[in-house]
């Protein structure tokens, strides 16, 4: 379990990026952290693996205070995937890139090879194993970056804007992949602006604004509420906007995903159609 207790963080420039954050993340959780630019999302993510240490309060990872242990030690449990893959790719081949973390953590060559093969397979990158990561497209590079973290099977996976630059099918694959991970008991934390992606994946949502948590709850309860969405400079997902207009037909307002919308609409249409069908 990762626990943040009254965490505040002030950059050396004096800017207060986080203010009194209380949060806990455990295995099996899927959490989306959303908020406007500069809300403190990435700063928060960097606290989870000890890259940044809180100015006040404390962060505990499985009971260990992040101020007392090294980032390398925490990195084995907490995998943080950075937004821009160009900040971490440097190897000659995709295979070496994915092996880098494993080697740093001191795994034996056999384990490294096995894990690399497995991870590349899982992310659909196996065919690129011997290619240079720099010859891949932006979306592929992003997946290599993800693979390089996933290979060591961290208990907590933190993804900073994973959907940027991915086409819709890749996003769909990413969603399934995340689903797999947290149903295996791992925790997945995703920082994102992608309202539609969140609406369809239905994680717990944490809304951050100006360094403070301003909203917490399921995706449908948070993303369908105007005051919350506006506070974090987001726009409601399309499904929620549609159901906002349909309340006069007795439909609920807090619908954000296609699946639930379909069930509700089918019920409604059934009611409308049924008498028509009996008449003739």
């Amino acid at each position: 379990m990762i626990t943040l207790e009254h965490v505040s963080f002030r950059y050396s420039s004096g800017y207060l990026a986080l203010h009194e954050i209380d949060l806990s993340i455990q295995g099996g959780d899927f959490v989306a952290i959303m908020g406007e630019n500069g809300a403190g999302k990435t700063t928060l993510a960097k606290h989870l693996n000890g890259l940044l240490k809180p100015s006040q309060g404390r962060v505990l990872v499985d009971g260990e205070d992040t101020r007392k242990v090294s980032v390398a030690h925490l990195a084995r449990k907490v995998g943080l995937v950075f937004q821009n893959p160009d900040h971490l790719l440097f190897s000659e081949t995709v295979k070496d890139e994915v092996a880098f973390g494993l080697k740093n953590f001191g795994f034996s060559p056999e384990v490294v090879e096995k894990q690399v093969g497995r991870t590349l397979e899982a992310l659909g990158l196996a065919e690129y194993a011997d290619k240079s990561p720099f010859l891949l497209s932006g979306g592929e590079r992003k997946r290599v970056a993800l693979a390089s973290i996933l290979a060591s099977e961290p208990d907590y996976l933190i993804l900073d804007e994973p959907t940027i630059g991915q086409d819709y099918q890749q996003k769909e694959r990413l969603r399934n992949f995340i689903l797999q991970l947290y149903s295996q008991g791992k925790a997945v934390v995703m920082i994102t602006h992608d309202v539609e992606f969140v609406a369809e994946s239905n994680p717990k949502v944490i809304l951050l604004s100006k360094g403070q948590i301003v909203g917490k709850g399921s995706a449908d309860s948070v993303l369908s509420r105007d005051e919350m969405v506006n506070r974090a400079s987001l726009v409601k997902p399309q499904m929620s906007r549609l159901f906002g207009e349909l309340t006069k037909y007795g439909l609920p307002r807090d619908v954000v995903d296609v699946h639930r919308a379909r069930i509700l609409l089918e019920d409604k249409l059934g009611e409308v159609k049924a008498p028509v069908a009996q008449n003739p």
């Binding site: 960097k46 693996n49 890259l51 090294s70 980032v71 390398a72 990195a75 084995r76 995998g79 943080l80 950075f82 821009n84 900040h87 971490l88 440097f90 880098f100 973390g101 740093n104 953590f105 390089s148 973290i149 060591s152």
Partner: peptide, 27 residues
């Protein structure tokens, strides 16, 4: 940012002897 990203992959810049430390900066 690059230093942060590589530390998140378990890179320890101040580990090992002098040669190793220089090599640590390649990533």
């Amino acid at each position: 940012t690059v230093v942060d990203a590589q530390r998140s992959r378990g890179l320890e810049l101040d580990r090992g002897n002098l040669l190793r430390r220089i090599r640590n900066y390649i990533p």
